[in-house]
């Protein structure tokens, strides 16, 4: 797990008060279902927390959010990419 992924994992666990050990995650850990177990309501909270912490507004243009919310790694990459811009 990269430092960026670990920071995001901690943010997600803290924001949602999850019963999940953030240190056990890695880049491939799924955000939906097994893994973090997030649902669409959580995604809204994560989007808000990410916007406040990183100043990045998440955009998917896909109602299932399949790509950017696929794993901790894909969401981290999205944030890093848009922060850099």
């Amino acid at each position: 797990m990269t430092a960026e992924e670990e920071a995001l994992a901690r943010l997600i666990v803290e924001t949602l008060n999850l019963d999940f050990d953030a240190t056990s995650a890695d880049g491939t850990t799924a955000l939906y279902k097994e893994g973090f177990g997030l649902d669409s309501i959580d995604i809204l909270e994560v989007a808000l927390a990410v916007s406040q912490r990183y100043g990045v507004k998440l955009r998917s243009d896909d109602e299932n959010n399949t790509e950017i919310f696929r794993s901790l790694g894909t969401l981290t990459a999205y944030i890093e990419h848009h922060r850099a811009q």
């Binding site: 669409s40 995604i43 809204l44 989007a47 998440l58 243009d61 109602e63 959010n65």
Partner: peptide, 12 residues
């Protein structure tokens, strides 16, 4: 036709 979920998507 779509059902946007994220705030930025809804606004767009």
């Amino acid at each position: 036709r779509t059902r946007p979920l994220l705030p930025a998507d809804i606004a767009a």
